[in-house]
């Protein structure tokens, strides 16, 4: 479907859409997830502190979990598409996996931070550019 061709702001139904987001429904959950994801992404891109970048990654992962769980909720009474089998809980299970992966990621990421800090006494990416040029 062609969704990107449409102007996002100059749209007649936009205000209705935004007003509709203030109620508990699938679209509003997804919109919340998108907003949190964007904030996390912004944190990763803009911050220079490795620790904060890692925390921002966690925020992004949480946003993704939110989206998964919302869809799991919306899928619960729907049968699988033709030729596929899935459990509606797949979304929640995936969110669990994300928690596990996030834990692993945090462990390794923080270990790297510690190792790096021990050698260079810094966690600032402006000082971490041995790969430059």
């Amino acid at each position: 479907m062609d969704v990107t061709g449409m102007p996002i702001l100059a749209d007649a139904g936009l205000m209705d859409f935004v007003a509709g987001l203030f109620s508990f429904k699938l679209v509003s959950c997804l919109a919340l997830s998108a907003a949190i994801f964007s904030i996390g992404a912004m944190g990763v891109l803009a911050r220079r502190n490795v620790l904060v970048m890692l925390i921002s990654v966690e925020v992004m992962l949480n946003a993704v979990m939110l989206a998964f769980v919302s869809f799991a909720r919306a899928m619960v009474n729907l049968g699988p598409p033709a030729g596929k089998t899935f459990a509606a809980e797949g979304g929640q299970i995936f969110a669990l996996f994300i928690i596990a992966v996030a834990a692993a990621e945090a462990a390794v990421g923080l270990a790297i931070v510690i190792a790096y800090f021990r050698n260079r006494q810094t966690v600032d990416t402006r000082d971490i550019k041995a790969m430059r040029n």
Partner: peptide, 8 residues
């Protein structure tokens, strides 16, 4: 030259 070394 494009390799700035900055993670961000």
């Amino acid at each position: 030259k494009t390799q700035t070394g900055l993670i961000n």
